Each structure stands twice: as C-alpha cells, then as structure tokens.
Computed example of a mutant assay.
Amino acid sequence: MKYDLLSELNLDALVCSINNEVIGWRRYLHENPELSFQEDNTAQFVYDKLQTFGGLEISRPTKTSIVARLIGNHPGKVLAIRADMDALPIQEETKIEFSSKKDGIMHACGHDGHTAMLLGAAKLLCSFKNQIEGEIRFIFQHAEELPPGGAIEMVNAGVLDGVDLIIGAHLTSNLETGKIGLNYGPIMAGADMFKITIIGEGGHASQPNQTIDPILIGTQVVTNLQHIVSRKIDPIDTAVISVTQFNGGTAVNVIPNYVTIGGSVRSFKPEVRNNIPKLIEQIVKGITDAHGSKYEFEYHYGYSPVINDNETTNLIDKTVCEIFGEENRVFINPIMGSEDFSAFLNEVPGAYFFVGSRNETEGIVYPHHHPKFNIDERALKDGVKIFVKGAFTILNN
C-alpha cells in the first residue's frame, strides 16, 4: 500500500466526494432504527451497499451482522475496522427532518453515524485494492447495547481469524466537532451487574416487632455498599458501585416478605473487578445475619474494560495529528461507560477512539441515550478520514 496515494489534499477530496452519500446513509439509518439482535433490515441495507462497491468478499457471520473483506493483491497484515449498528428503546424528541419512523426506538448513541462512516471508508478503500498490502476487514456489528452483546458472538463466529489489529471509533457529544479523543491504555470501564434479594418475614405495618423488615435491612445494605469504593478500594484505583433498583412492597400497611436491590459496577483493574462481588456479599451477609434475615446474591460479569494497545494507539495518534493537527488531538481520561468492543481487544491488539460531534451553535449538545441526542454531521467526514488514512498508516507500518 503506497502512502503517497493519499496526500492530505487527495484525502480531503476523496472524502468530500462521497460525503453526501455518507450523510444520506446516516439519515436513512436514523429514520429506520432497529433494536439489538433485531437489525435485520439494517444488516440488509449494509449488505446491499457493500455489494455495489466491488472487490469485497461479504459474509454474514451471525443473523444480523456483516463482515466484508478487502483482500489486497500483495501479502501483509490484516486490519479490522468495526462499527456497531443497533439502536435504543427510546422515544425520539429531536424534531429533525429524518427523525425515527419507529415509535419508542431511536439511534440515541450515534451508531447510525458509525455505520455510515465505515461504509464510506469501505467504498473509498475499495478503489485502492490493487495497492493494498494485506487485508482490511470491515466488521458491521449487531447488538452493542444489550449484553452479552454482539461482539462476543462475532468473535465466536471467527470474524477475527487471521486479524492482526483492530480499530473502532465512537462519535461523542462530549467533544466539539473537529476534536478527536484518545487514550493510551484503559479508555472505557468494565460493566457488571448485581441483584440482591433480602428475605425477611412480612406482616402488618402496625406491628413491626412481629416482622423481620426487609425494607429496613435493604436500606442499610444500600448505605453500606457505598463504603466499598470509599474504604475498601485503593483511592488510586477507579470504581463505581451504583444501586439503581430497589423494589418491594405491595401496600402501605403491609411490611413485605422480601425486597430486591439491583445495580451496576464499573471498574478497570482485574483485581478490583474480581474483588468487588466478594465485598458486596460480605456486607449483605453481615447485615442480614445481624437482623436474622436471609439473602440471595447474583453477580453477572458484563463487558470487559476497553484497554487500548499502545502501539496501535500510537499509529492512530500519528494519523490524527497528521490530519487534524496536534491541537485537535485530545487525550481524554478513561470513561466509566462500557463498550463490547472489549471482546475484540481481548483477542487481538487494537485501539478505540472518539470523534467529536458536539455543536453548541446548532444545539447539538445532548448526552448519549437522551431522547434529543443528535450528531453534527460534519463529524462523519472526520471518522471516514481516520479510518481511511489509519488503514494506510497501519498496513504500511
């Protein structure tokens, strides 16, 4: 792959030449969102577009995902580039011309833009097939939003067989358009879930002395869970324990037999991640024993932390600085949100980065998963540029 095929001027011209198409693809996908594991029409749309590019080997490793292989005429490394495609169960409130046509479903996280950017990169890179040394594998992934996630299904289906490196990007409302965020090492946290059932003995609200009140016990559990991060984890390490559900009771004059407590845990280090469920159960057991009640405890490991490989990150860093200048490359702190891109990074080295899509002048400021979330469509060109030039940089390295 000869680097001089992509001077800065040529890259700008190439990306601009398909920009209207990329925007059109994004708007079509935004109008027609589909939930995780239900991306049938989205996958078909992507498949049909890829077929028109020519030179690709296209397959469906799972029911609603697509992989397209661009195999060069010369041997070399295999680079994978990933985009996610699923939407969220949210009622859209943006009032844009191309709002979701489906009640209660919208692209509130930018995955429509991710898919459009990767389609654009695939179209441009297909024109360099004869000069490519190695292979570029375009991964259009389903079900990022719903654990266990689509990434692990694709890994199990063999989409990374033979892959040397993988990269992925996320549009973000936390950075202005034109800014690119990255980090060496940890960039997104692991996400786990827990459910606690406090089993007491219910009775009449007027005679609490004849009951074992699971609500009272449960509130003590919730309070004490906050001590784990503040007193049991090294302040240098990072973790979050959030209780997000507390359910119990059916009437105001009845003390219930049980309550359920649910929540989320975020962390980066394996030793911290593995120790937290032990600490949670230790607290639950101690409090329930003290009050003569019983408990049930469930803990589910979700997405692993996203840990960027330093060498791959350096190549993306170099690419970003060459395209946008060092002043627009932003080193960001690790984010406590999670991403199943980690399933790919657990198999091969790679890098995940963020493409700014915030535009305060246009009112594009709402956070991800908000019913008014939108992206500045100028950011789509930025993502395509990084994917295209990044492919050259990585395969030439």
Rank of each mutant, 00 (worst) to 15 (best):
I394S: 05
A13N: 15
N73P: 00
T64C: 14
S230K: 10
T172G: 09
I132N: 00
F297H: 01
H114D: 08
F128C: 03
G150A: 04
H30N: 14
I90M: 07
N156W: 09
Y352G: 01
V22G: 03
Q141A: 13
R26M: 02
N257T: 12
E327C: 04
L29E: 07
Y184S: 09
Q207R: 13
N314G: 13
A189K: 02
I58H: 12
R69F: 03
F246R: 12
E133A: 15
F297N: 01
F37I: 11
E21D: 15
V229F: 10
D4H: 12
H368N: 14
A87Q: 05
S59L: 03
T361A: 15
C126E: 03
A121E: 08
R358W: 03
N41C: 09
L146T: 10
M193L: 11
G120D: 07
N275V: 03
E31V: 03
P89A: 10
T288F: 07
H111S: 12
I136G: 01
H74E: 12
E311I: 06
G383R: 02
K385E: 05
T197H: 07
K195Q: 12
N310K: 13
K63Q: 14
V229P: 00
V330W: 02
Y258Q: 15
A108Q: 12
F373R: 02
I394D: 06
G286R: 11
P256C: 03
I316A: 04
L279T: 04
W25L: 09
G302I: 03
P371N: 07
H170W: 11
G185N: 09
P256V: 05
I199N: 13
E57Q: 14
Y352W: 15
S17F: 07
T260N: 11
E298Q: 15
H227E: 08
F324N: 01
P371F: 10
A121W: 05
I236P: 01
G181A: 11
A391K: 07
R231L: 06
L124Y: 03
T62C: 10
Y3F: 12
E298L: 13
L79Q: 10
G178C: 10
V78T: 15
D161G: 00
I241S: 13
T172E: 08
S304Q: 13
G248L: 00
I18Q: 10
N130W: 00
N156P: 05
G72Y: 01
G158F: 08
